[in-house]
Amino acid sequence: MDLELDSISVDGIVDGISLSAGTGEVVGVVGPNGSGKSTTLRCVYRALKPSGGAVLLDGRDLLSLPLKESARRLAALTQDSHVEFDFTVAEVVAMGRLPHKGAFDRDTERDHDLVTDALRRVDAGHLAERSFLTLSGGERQRVLIARALVQEPDVLVLDEPTNHLDIRHQLDVLALVRGLGLTVLMVLHDLNLAAAYCDRVHVLDGGRVVAGGKPADVLTPDLVQAVFGVRAHLVQHPVSGVPQLLFEHPEVSP
Protein backbone atom coordinates (compact mmCIF):
# COMPACT_ATOMS: atom_id res chain seq x y z
CA MET A 1 0.00 0.00 0.00
CA ASP A 2 1.49 3.35 -0.85
CA LEU A 3 1.44 6.41 1.34
CA GLU A 4 1.36 9.92 -0.03
CA LEU A 5 1.47 13.25 1.77
CA ASP A 6 -0.01 15.94 -0.38
CA SER A 7 1.07 19.46 0.63
CA ILE A 8 0.55 19.00 4.39
CA SER A 9 0.59 22.28 6.28
CA VAL A 10 0.44 23.08 9.98
CA ASP A 11 0.24 26.79 10.68
CA GLY A 12 3.63 28.22 11.50
CA ILE A 13 5.44 24.87 11.54
CA VAL A 14 5.28 23.04 8.23
CA ASP A 15 4.29 24.51 4.92
CA GLY A 16 3.16 22.32 2.05
CA ILE A 17 5.01 19.07 2.72
CA SER A 18 4.61 16.60 -0.12
CA LEU A 19 6.34 13.25 -0.03
CA SER A 20 5.54 9.62 -0.64
CA ALA A 21 6.44 6.06 0.20
CA GLY A 22 5.64 3.33 -2.30
CA THR A 23 4.45 -0.17 -1.39
CA GLY A 24 7.14 -1.95 0.62
CA GLU A 25 9.47 1.02 0.41
CA VAL A 26 11.45 2.28 3.42
CA VAL A 27 11.50 6.06 3.30
CA GLY A 28 13.41 8.31 5.70
CA VAL A 29 12.72 11.87 6.74
CA VAL A 30 15.75 13.82 7.93
CA GLY A 31 16.43 17.44 8.79
CA PRO A 32 17.65 19.75 11.55
CA ASN A 33 15.84 20.17 14.87
CA GLY A 34 12.70 22.22 14.40
CA SER A 35 12.49 21.53 10.68
CA GLY A 36 9.04 19.98 11.09
CA LYS A 37 9.86 16.26 10.85
CA SER A 38 7.93 15.14 13.89
CA THR A 39 5.07 17.54 13.16
CA THR A 40 4.73 16.05 9.71
CA LEU A 41 4.74 12.54 11.12
CA ARG A 42 2.19 13.45 13.77
CA CYS A 43 -0.14 14.53 11.00
CA VAL A 44 0.28 11.13 9.39
CA TYR A 45 -0.51 9.15 12.52
CA ARG A 46 -3.30 11.60 13.32
CA ALA A 47 -2.12 13.00 16.64
CA LEU A 48 -2.31 16.39 14.94
CA LYS A 49 -4.81 17.72 12.45
CA PRO A 50 -3.06 19.55 9.61
CA SER A 51 -4.46 22.93 8.67
CA GLY A 52 -4.15 22.00 5.02
CA GLY A 53 -3.30 19.12 2.73
CA ALA A 54 -4.14 15.44 2.67
CA VAL A 55 -2.64 12.09 3.61
CA LEU A 56 -3.51 9.47 1.00
CA LEU A 57 -3.31 5.73 1.45
CA ASP A 58 -3.54 4.06 -1.95
CA GLY A 59 -5.17 7.26 -3.11
CA ARG A 60 -7.78 7.26 -0.33
CA ASP A 61 -8.00 10.11 2.16
CA LEU A 62 -6.72 8.73 5.48
CA LEU A 63 -7.73 11.71 7.61
CA SER A 64 -11.43 11.40 6.79
CA LEU A 65 -11.55 7.77 7.99
CA PRO A 66 -12.70 6.98 11.52
CA LEU A 67 -9.62 6.75 13.78
CA LYS A 68 -10.25 3.08 14.41
CA GLU A 69 -10.28 2.30 10.72
CA SER A 70 -7.10 4.18 9.92
CA ALA A 71 -5.45 2.43 12.89
CA ARG A 72 -6.08 -0.88 11.10
CA ARG A 73 -4.05 0.33 8.11
CA LEU A 74 -1.37 2.45 9.68
CA ALA A 75 0.58 1.73 12.88
CA ALA A 76 3.02 4.10 14.51
CA LEU A 77 5.81 4.25 17.06
CA THR A 78 5.57 7.69 18.63
CA GLN A 79 7.97 9.55 20.87
CA ASP A 80 5.75 9.41 23.94
CA SER A 81 6.76 6.16 25.53
CA HIS A 82 5.73 7.09 29.05
CA VAL A 83 3.81 4.18 30.52
CA GLU A 84 2.21 4.72 33.90
CA PHE A 85 1.14 1.23 34.82
CA ASP A 86 2.89 -2.06 35.19
CA PHE A 87 1.77 -3.91 32.07
CA THR A 88 3.48 -7.10 30.95
CA VAL A 89 5.11 -7.19 27.54
CA ALA A 90 2.40 -9.54 26.25
CA GLU A 91 -0.28 -7.11 27.44
CA VAL A 92 1.42 -4.18 25.73
CA VAL A 93 1.71 -6.11 22.47
CA ALA A 94 -1.92 -7.26 22.73
CA MET A 95 -2.98 -3.60 22.77
CA GLY A 96 -2.21 -3.61 19.07
CA ARG A 97 -5.45 -5.57 18.62
CA LEU A 98 -7.44 -2.59 19.91
CA PRO A 99 -8.49 -1.19 16.53
CA HIS A 100 -9.84 -4.62 15.56
CA LYS A 101 -12.00 -5.06 18.66
CA GLY A 102 -15.44 -3.94 19.82
CA ALA A 103 -16.32 -3.08 23.41
CA PHE A 104 -17.05 -6.58 24.67
CA ASP A 105 -15.06 -8.70 22.18
CA ARG A 106 -12.89 -11.26 23.89
CA ASP A 107 -9.39 -12.20 22.84
CA THR A 108 -9.52 -15.06 20.38
CA GLU A 109 -7.04 -17.84 19.70
CA ARG A 110 -5.93 -15.83 16.68
CA ASP A 111 -5.21 -12.74 18.81
CA HIS A 112 -2.96 -14.82 21.04
CA ASP A 113 -1.21 -16.33 18.03
CA LEU A 114 -0.63 -12.89 16.53
CA VAL A 115 0.95 -11.69 19.77
CA THR A 116 3.17 -14.77 20.03
CA ASP A 117 4.21 -14.53 16.38
CA ALA A 118 4.95 -10.82 16.57
CA LEU A 119 7.09 -11.28 19.67
CA ARG A 120 8.98 -14.07 17.95
CA ARG A 121 9.53 -11.93 14.85
CA VAL A 122 11.17 -9.19 16.88
CA ASP A 123 13.13 -11.79 18.83
CA ALA A 124 11.39 -10.95 22.11
CA GLY A 125 9.41 -14.13 22.78
CA HIS A 126 11.32 -14.68 26.01
CA LEU A 127 10.17 -11.28 27.32
CA ALA A 128 6.42 -11.98 27.12
CA GLU A 129 5.82 -12.15 30.88
CA ARG A 130 8.30 -9.42 31.83
CA SER A 131 7.09 -6.03 33.04
CA PHE A 132 7.32 -3.55 30.18
CA LEU A 133 8.69 -0.93 32.60
CA THR A 134 11.75 -3.06 33.38
CA LEU A 135 12.90 -3.43 29.77
CA SER A 136 15.99 -1.79 28.32
CA GLY A 137 15.60 0.79 25.56
CA GLY A 138 16.36 -1.66 22.79
CA GLU A 139 13.97 -4.29 24.15
CA ARG A 140 11.23 -1.68 24.50
CA GLN A 141 11.58 -0.59 20.92
CA ARG A 142 11.37 -4.20 19.69
CA VAL A 143 8.28 -4.82 21.82
CA LEU A 144 6.61 -1.69 20.46
CA ILE A 145 7.36 -2.85 16.92
CA ALA A 146 5.69 -6.15 17.84
CA ARG A 147 2.67 -4.19 19.03
CA ALA A 148 2.58 -2.38 15.71
CA LEU A 149 2.74 -5.75 13.90
CA VAL A 150 -0.30 -7.24 15.65
CA GLN A 151 -2.18 -4.19 14.44
CA GLU A 152 -1.75 -5.85 11.01
CA PRO A 153 -1.06 -2.54 9.28
CA ASP A 154 0.03 -1.90 5.72
CA VAL A 155 2.05 1.14 6.67
CA LEU A 156 4.38 1.67 9.62
CA VAL A 157 5.37 5.15 10.76
CA LEU A 158 8.25 5.62 13.21
CA ASP A 159 9.43 8.77 14.95
CA GLU A 160 13.15 8.43 15.67
CA PRO A 161 13.05 4.71 16.49
CA THR A 162 16.79 4.67 17.29
CA ASN A 163 16.62 7.39 19.94
CA HIS A 164 18.56 6.55 23.11
CA LEU A 165 19.77 3.23 21.72
CA ASP A 166 23.37 2.10 21.60
CA ILE A 167 24.86 1.49 18.16
CA ARG A 168 24.22 -2.25 18.16
CA HIS A 169 20.55 -1.76 19.01
CA GLN A 170 20.21 1.06 16.47
CA LEU A 171 21.37 -1.28 13.73
CA ASP A 172 19.19 -4.12 15.06
CA VAL A 173 16.04 -2.02 15.11
CA LEU A 174 16.57 -0.60 11.64
CA ALA A 175 17.42 -4.00 10.16
CA LEU A 176 14.26 -5.35 11.79
CA VAL A 177 12.15 -2.52 10.36
CA ARG A 178 13.60 -3.10 6.89
CA GLY A 179 12.86 -6.79 7.07
CA LEU A 180 9.15 -6.37 7.86
CA GLY A 181 8.11 -5.88 4.25
CA LEU A 182 5.80 -3.00 5.20
CA THR A 183 5.64 0.44 3.70
CA VAL A 184 7.73 2.45 6.16
CA LEU A 185 8.01 6.18 6.77
CA MET A 186 10.42 7.12 9.54
CA VAL A 187 12.10 10.15 10.98
CA LEU A 188 15.81 9.62 11.60
CA HIS A 189 18.41 11.94 13.05
CA ASP A 190 21.45 10.04 11.89
CA LEU A 191 22.15 10.76 8.23
CA ASN A 192 24.43 7.75 7.86
CA LEU A 193 21.80 5.38 9.23
CA ALA A 194 19.31 6.96 6.85
CA ALA A 195 21.73 6.40 3.98
CA ALA A 196 22.27 2.78 4.97
CA TYR A 197 18.69 1.69 5.69
CA CYS A 198 16.37 3.83 3.56
CA ASP A 199 15.40 3.30 -0.07
CA ARG A 200 14.72 6.99 -0.34
CA VAL A 201 15.09 10.01 1.94
CA HIS A 202 13.36 13.36 2.14
CA VAL A 203 15.17 16.30 3.67
CA LEU A 204 13.15 18.90 5.57
CA ASP A 205 14.34 22.38 6.40
CA GLY A 206 12.28 25.24 7.81
CA GLY A 207 9.04 23.34 7.37
CA ARG A 208 9.57 22.52 3.70
CA VAL A 209 10.90 19.58 1.72
CA VAL A 210 14.19 20.75 0.25
CA ALA A 211 15.32 17.49 -1.33
CA GLY A 212 14.13 13.96 -1.95
CA GLY A 213 15.38 10.84 -3.67
CA LYS A 214 17.88 8.02 -3.30
CA PRO A 215 20.24 8.58 -0.35
CA ALA A 216 23.26 8.68 -2.67
CA ASP A 217 21.69 11.46 -4.72
CA VAL A 218 20.33 13.47 -1.80
CA LEU A 219 22.76 13.26 1.11
CA THR A 220 25.61 15.19 -0.46
CA PRO A 221 28.17 17.43 1.26
CA ASP A 222 26.59 20.44 -0.44
CA LEU A 223 23.16 19.65 0.96
CA VAL A 224 24.52 18.98 4.44
CA GLN A 225 26.35 22.32 4.32
CA ALA A 226 23.23 24.15 3.15
CA VAL A 227 20.75 22.53 5.55
CA PHE A 228 22.78 21.74 8.67
CA GLY A 229 25.60 24.28 8.30
CA VAL A 230 28.15 21.50 8.73
CA ARG A 231 30.96 20.56 6.36
CA ALA A 232 30.82 16.93 5.35
CA HIS A 233 33.02 14.57 3.40
CA LEU A 234 31.56 11.75 1.40
CA VAL A 235 33.11 8.31 1.73
CA GLN A 236 32.00 4.88 0.69
CA HIS A 237 31.34 2.22 3.25
CA PRO A 238 34.21 -0.23 2.70
CA VAL A 239 31.93 -3.28 2.94
CA SER A 240 28.40 -2.33 1.89
CA GLY A 241 29.43 0.45 -0.45
CA VAL A 242 26.68 2.81 0.74
CA PRO A 243 27.61 6.49 0.86
CA GLN A 244 28.52 7.68 4.37
CA LEU A 245 29.36 11.14 5.64
CA LEU A 246 32.19 12.29 7.86
CA PHE A 247 31.50 15.59 9.61
CA GLU A 248 33.64 18.52 10.52
CA HIS A 249 32.67 21.06 13.16
CA PRO A 250 32.51 24.48 11.50
CA GLU A 251 34.74 26.20 14.09
CA VAL A 252 37.35 23.49 14.03
CA SER A 253 37.74 23.63 10.27
CA PRO A 254 40.85 25.48 9.13
Binding site: L67, A76, D80, V83, M95, G96
Partner: peptide, 16 residues
Protein backbone atom coordinates in the same frame (compact mmCIF):
# COMPACT_ATOMS: atom_id res chain seq x y z
CA UNK B 1 -5.36 0.11 28.51
CA UNK B 2 -4.60 2.04 25.34
CA UNK B 3 -5.01 5.38 27.11
CA UNK B 4 -2.46 4.26 29.73
CA UNK B 5 0.17 4.13 26.97
CA UNK B 6 0.03 7.87 26.32
CA UNK B 7 -2.26 10.06 24.26
CA UNK B 8 -0.37 9.83 20.98
CA UNK B 9 0.00 6.08 21.17
CA UNK B 10 -3.66 5.76 22.09
CA UNK B 11 -4.53 7.80 19.01
CA UNK B 12 -2.50 5.50 16.78
CA UNK B 13 -4.47 2.59 18.29
CA UNK B 14 -7.67 4.19 17.05
CA UNK B 15 -8.85 5.95 20.22
CA UNK B 16 -10.34 9.43 20.04
Amino acid sequence: NGLSMGDETATTLGID
